[in-house]
Amino acid sequence: MAKALLIYTRAALAEVAGCFAFWVWLRNGKSPVWVLPGIVSLVAFAWLLTLIDSDYAGRVYAAYGGIYVAASIAWLWFLEGARPDRWDIVGATVVFVGAAIILFGPRST
Protein backbone atom coordinates (compact mmCIF):
# COMPACT_ATOMS: atom_id res chain seq x y z
CA MET A 1 0.00 0.00 0.00
CA ALA A 2 2.81 2.42 0.85
CA LYS A 3 4.40 1.70 -2.54
CA ALA A 4 1.14 2.49 -4.35
CA LEU A 5 0.73 5.74 -2.41
CA LEU A 6 4.26 6.77 -3.34
CA ILE A 7 3.62 5.98 -7.01
CA TYR A 8 0.29 7.85 -6.97
CA THR A 9 1.96 10.86 -5.32
CA ARG A 10 4.78 10.94 -7.85
CA ALA A 11 2.29 10.56 -10.70
CA ALA A 12 0.22 13.46 -9.37
CA LEU A 13 3.24 15.72 -9.09
CA ALA A 14 4.30 14.77 -12.61
CA GLU A 15 0.83 15.44 -14.02
CA VAL A 16 0.33 18.75 -12.24
CA ALA A 17 3.83 19.91 -13.20
CA GLY A 18 3.30 18.87 -16.82
CA CYS A 19 -0.02 20.64 -17.09
CA PHE A 20 1.39 23.69 -15.30
CA ALA A 21 4.18 23.92 -17.89
CA PHE A 22 1.55 24.23 -20.63
CA TRP A 23 -0.41 26.72 -18.49
CA VAL A 24 2.67 28.91 -18.08
CA TRP A 25 3.33 28.82 -21.82
CA LEU A 26 -0.21 29.39 -23.05
CA ARG A 27 -1.75 31.50 -20.27
CA ASN A 28 1.26 33.41 -18.97
CA GLY A 29 2.95 34.04 -22.31
CA LYS A 30 6.21 32.29 -21.43
CA SER A 31 8.53 30.68 -23.94
CA PRO A 32 7.36 27.57 -25.83
CA VAL A 33 10.43 25.90 -24.34
CA TRP A 34 8.21 25.28 -21.29
CA VAL A 35 6.42 22.63 -23.36
CA LEU A 36 9.43 20.30 -23.40
CA PRO A 37 9.62 19.60 -19.66
CA GLY A 38 5.83 19.53 -19.67
CA ILE A 39 5.79 16.70 -22.19
CA VAL A 40 8.46 14.77 -20.30
CA SER A 41 6.53 15.22 -17.09
CA LEU A 42 3.25 14.02 -18.63
CA VAL A 43 4.96 10.96 -20.11
CA ALA A 44 6.39 10.19 -16.65
CA PHE A 45 2.90 10.56 -15.19
CA ALA A 46 1.41 8.02 -17.62
CA TRP A 47 4.28 5.58 -17.07
CA LEU A 48 4.02 5.85 -13.28
CA LEU A 49 0.35 4.86 -13.30
CA THR A 50 1.24 1.66 -15.16
CA LEU A 51 3.31 0.64 -12.11
CA ILE A 52 0.22 0.33 -9.89
CA ASP A 53 -0.70 -3.31 -9.26
CA SER A 54 -4.26 -3.66 -10.55
CA ASP A 55 -6.14 -5.76 -13.06
CA TYR A 56 -8.09 -2.73 -14.31
CA ALA A 57 -6.70 0.57 -15.56
CA GLY A 58 -9.98 2.39 -14.94
CA ARG A 59 -9.89 1.56 -11.24
CA VAL A 60 -6.31 2.81 -11.00
CA TYR A 61 -7.31 6.08 -12.68
CA ALA A 62 -10.39 6.51 -10.50
CA ALA A 63 -8.48 5.93 -7.26
CA TYR A 64 -5.72 8.24 -8.52
CA GLY A 65 -8.26 11.06 -8.87
CA GLY A 66 -8.25 11.72 -5.12
CA ILE A 67 -4.48 11.97 -5.02
CA TYR A 68 -4.52 14.27 -8.04
CA VAL A 69 -7.00 16.66 -6.45
CA ALA A 70 -5.03 16.75 -3.18
CA ALA A 71 -1.80 17.40 -5.10
CA SER A 72 -3.49 20.15 -7.12
CA ILE A 73 -4.67 21.91 -3.96
CA ALA A 74 -1.18 21.59 -2.48
CA TRP A 75 0.29 23.02 -5.71
CA LEU A 76 -2.18 25.92 -5.54
CA TRP A 77 -1.10 26.71 -2.00
CA PHE A 78 2.63 26.04 -1.92
CA LEU A 79 3.74 26.83 -5.47
CA GLU A 80 1.23 29.40 -6.62
CA GLY A 81 0.83 31.09 -3.25
CA ALA A 82 -2.98 31.01 -3.19
CA ARG A 83 -4.33 29.66 0.07
CA PRO A 84 -7.15 27.14 -0.53
CA ASP A 85 -10.54 28.31 0.71
CA ARG A 86 -13.07 26.15 2.54
CA TRP A 87 -14.70 25.05 -0.71
CA ASP A 88 -11.38 23.84 -2.07
CA ILE A 89 -10.89 21.81 1.11
CA VAL A 90 -14.46 20.46 1.21
CA GLY A 91 -14.33 19.49 -2.47
CA ALA A 92 -10.93 17.84 -2.12
CA THR A 93 -12.16 15.91 0.91
CA VAL A 94 -15.22 14.63 -0.94
CA VAL A 95 -13.09 13.48 -3.88
CA PHE A 96 -10.51 11.91 -1.57
CA VAL A 97 -13.19 9.96 0.32
CA GLY A 98 -14.62 8.78 -3.00
CA ALA A 99 -11.21 7.62 -4.17
CA ALA A 100 -10.68 5.76 -0.87
CA ILE A 101 -14.01 3.97 -1.35
CA ILE A 102 -12.94 2.90 -4.84
CA LEU A 103 -9.51 1.83 -3.63
CA PHE A 104 -10.44 0.05 -0.41
CA GLY A 105 -14.01 -1.08 -1.04
CA PRO A 106 -14.64 -4.81 -0.71
CA ARG A 107 -14.61 -6.61 -4.03
CA SER A 108 -16.26 -9.86 -4.94
CA THR A 109 -13.95 -12.08 -6.92
Results as ranks from 00 to 15, higher is better:
residue 12 A to D: 03
residue 35 V to Y: 10
residue 21 A to N: 02
residue 28 N to A: 14
residue 2 A to M: 11
residue 109 T to A: 15
residue 65 G to M: 07
residue 53 D to S: 11
residue 33 V to P: 06
residue 108 S to M: 12
residue 74 A to G: 01
residue 41 S to D: 04
residue 105 G to F: 07
residue 8 Y to R: 02
residue 29 G to M: 09
residue 101 I to C: 03
residue 86 R to P: 04
residue 48 L to E: 10
residue 12 A to E: 03
residue 74 A to V: 14
residue 38 G to S: 09
residue 33 V to W: 15
residue 65 G to Q: 06
residue 86 R to S: 12
residue 24 V to W: 13
residue 38 G to R: 08
residue 17 A to F: 15
residue 70 A to I: 09
residue 103 L to D: 09
residue 26 L to K: 10
residue 102 I to E: 08
residue 106 P to C: 05
residue 72 S to I: 01
residue 9 T to P: 02
residue 43 V to I: 14
residue 33 V to F: 14
residue 26 L to H: 04
residue 96 F to M: 13
residue 72 S to N: 07
residue 72 S to T: 07
residue 71 A to F: 04
residue 83 R to L: 09
residue 5 L to C: 13
residue 37 P to Q: 02
residue 34 W to M: 10
residue 41 S to G: 08
residue 42 L to Q: 04
residue 4 A to G: 00
residue 55 D to Y: 00
residue 67 I to N: 01
residue 56 Y to D: 12
residue 65 G to V: 06
residue 28 N to C: 13
residue 103 L to I: 05
residue 5 L to F: 15
residue 51 L to S: 09
residue 31 S to Q: 11
residue 1 M to P: 07
residue 109 T to Q: 15
residue 30 K to W: 14
residue 40 V to L: 14
residue 91 G to K: 02
residue 94 V to Y: 05
residue 76 L to D: 05
residue 101 I to Y: 08
residue 23 W to G: 05
residue 8 Y to D: 06
residue 25 W to L: 09
residue 27 R to G: 14
residue 57 A to Y: 12
residue 58 G to R: 08
residue 57 A to I: 10
residue 79 L to M: 12
residue 48 L to Y: 08
residue 106 P to D: 03
residue 7 I to L: 09
residue 76 L to A: 06
residue 64 Y to G: 06
residue 39 I to V: 15
residue 58 G to S: 13
residue 18 G to K: 11
residue 21 A to R: 01
residue 26 L to Y: 07
residue 66 G to E: 04
residue 83 R to E: 02
residue 96 F to P: 00
residue 98 G to W: 07
residue 6 L to G: 05
residue 13 L to N: 13
residue 109 T to V: 11
residue 33 V to D: 10
residue 58 G to I: 10
residue 16 V to K: 01
residue 11 A to Q: 00
residue 76 L to Q: 15
residue 9 T to M: 01
residue 3 K to T: 14
residue 5 L to H: 15
residue 85 D to S: 03
residue 37 P to G: 02
residue 91 G to E: 07
residue 78 F to N: 13
residue 87 W to Y: 15
residue 79 L to E: 14
residue 81 G to D: 08
residue 54 S to L: 04
residue 15 E to C: 08
residue 36 L to H: 00
residue 36 L to K: 01
residue 101 I to W: 03
residue 98 G to C: 07
residue 40 V to H: 03
residue 86 R to K: 12
residue 97 V to N: 07
residue 74 A to S: 11
residue 95 V to H: 08
residue 106 P to Q: 01
residue 62 A to M: 07
residue 23 W to F: 14
residue 106 P to G: 08
residue 70 A to K: 04
residue 108 S to C: 06
residue 106 P to T: 02
residue 46 A to P: 03
